[in-house]
């Protein structure tokens, strides 16, 4: 499992937020890649500008994603951004808040049929979304 192809900015699937926190949108069906399934995950992280101590890129750099494989509750956690550079204009000002939107791909072996994924940024924990090879819709 790893996170890759992280891009910043709004897309049609970016979830909206009205208050501080982090939100993930329910991913669509995965696409197959060799022996793996790749899910495109969209999310938004929004915090009050006064909470940023060092520089605004930390709105995206501080996000970690956790994938839990439910049968055995095997968890895996990693940073969203990793070594990708975050520039100040990747984070936008909305009123008195700073908003960072992202899209990333989660690469999972095809034998992993179901996983739960959620994100966390400081005190905020996102909703839990379900990654499934057999999408219900």
């Amino acid at each position: 499992m790893f996170f890759r192809s992280v891009t910043f900015g709004l897309t049609a699937d970016t979830p909206g937020t009205t208050g501080p926190g982090i939100v993930l949108s329910e991913p669509g069906p995965p696409f197959a890649e060799d022996d793996a399934l790749v899910y495109a995950l969209h999310g938004t992280c929004r915090i009050p500008a006064t909470d940023v101590e060092v520089e605004r890129g930390e709105v995206l750099r501080g996000v970690v994603l956790t994938v839990v494989f439910p049968p055995g509750q095997v968890p895996m956690t990693g940073p969203l951004v990793g070594t990708t550079l975050v520039f100040p204009d990747d984070v936008t000002d909305v009123g008195r808040d700073l908003v960072g939107s992202f899209r990333c791909e989660i690469w999972l072996p095809a034998r992993v049929q179901v996983s739960y994924v959620h994100g966390a940024f400081r005190r905020y924990v996102s909703n839990v979304v379900r990654l499934s090879a057999r999408h219900p819709s």
Partner: peptide
């Protein structure tokens, strides 16, 4: 009691970890 997952994330190191 063994199904819960503990998540620790550190914004200083921009990293996180989890353990069942």
């Amino acid at each position: 009691e063994e199904a819960m997952v503990l998540v620790v994330h550190d914004i200083e190191q921009a990293d996180g970890g989890s353990i069942r």
